[in-house]
Structures are given as structure tokens and as C-alpha cells.
Amino acid sequence: MKVEATKCMHCGACVGTCPENAIFLYEVALTFNDDCTKCGTCVKTCPVGAISMDDD
């Protein structure tokens, strides 16, 4: 998953909604671990659209 740091408001909305508990917010740094299934729930949850699917 891709996080646009300049959009992210570090609110934790994605963290609490992630069904796999794969997202971590440490101060202002948002990271995903290997449990991520790319289900896209975080993409929809983010109020400001800071997260996108990383198709690279």
C-alpha cells in the first residue's frame, strides 16, 4: 500500500479499521506489515484519501 505523507493526518482511522491489524501508526509514520492482504478497507476509510493500492 502507498501512503502520501503530505495528505496523511495521522488520525489512526485506517489502523482501527484494518481487519488484519496490519497497519501501524508511530507518531507520524504509517507503516504496513506482511499481514496486509490488500483488501482496500484502509483506502476507503481514510477521510482525506492519503492511502492508495500500490500496484508496482
Binding site: T17, L25, T45, P47
Partner: peptide, 26 residues
């Protein structure tokens, strides 16, 4: 520890929600 609670998940308490039961807020 709030909306993004970890303590419950660590302790094996199911706090996950269906996306229809979550409001994205600004």
C-alpha cells in the same frame, strides 16, 4: 487506547468491525 486500540487485539478480544459499521470522519 481509543479507536485504533491494540490492547484488545493483543489480548484476543475481537474488536474488528464491518466497514458498514465504521464512519470515516473529517
Amino acid at each position: 487506547d481509543g479507536y485504533e486500540s491494540q490492547v484488545g487485539r493483543w489480548a484476543g478480544i475481537d474488536t474488528t468491525m464491518d466497514p458498514k459499521d465504521v464512519q470515516s470522519c473529517l
